[in-house]
Amino acid sequence: MAITLIICESVIGNIGKGLKGKYDEMLAKDAVERISISRAESERLRMRKSTDRGTDIALSMPAGTRLRHGDVVSLADRMIVVAIEPENVAVVRLKNGDARTAVLVGHAIGNLHRPIRVEGDRIILPVQSDGEVEMLRRQLGPLAGNVDITRDFVVFEPEAGAHEH
């Protein structure tokens, strides 16, 4: 059996919130290790991963946990931080506050059954290929003057409650 296995059973905090000071402190001590997981894996409760430094990690989280970018799952002599892998997304920006455009864009994107994230005037949704961005452009073609569609490669964390199926 692997002796060095670290079993993590809860999220202790997030480096973007309460643990920021501690993170900086551990960073200064060169004691931060990261585990990379995909967005799909962020909803998993149980998995085995290696950190960027090769430490063996077993995650066994309480029901209902969703891992977020920057979550700390172990904090002792080392801090183990979750990093969500960046992915391809389409960014649909509403160029003006027109309600009609917003509803039509929402309807079109809703029909794709994807998770979304809304940041200000931008709607962000994951895509698998350039072809999908093109398809979105065609679908929203009639609204071309009011929307702007670009592609990006970022950490995507969906809105809670914006259910996909």
Binding site: M1, R48, S60
Partner: peptide
């Protein structure tokens, strides 16, 4: 055994 049961 390795990835799900963590070799426990």
């Amino acid at each position: 055994v390795r990835d799900v049961l963590f070799e426990l």
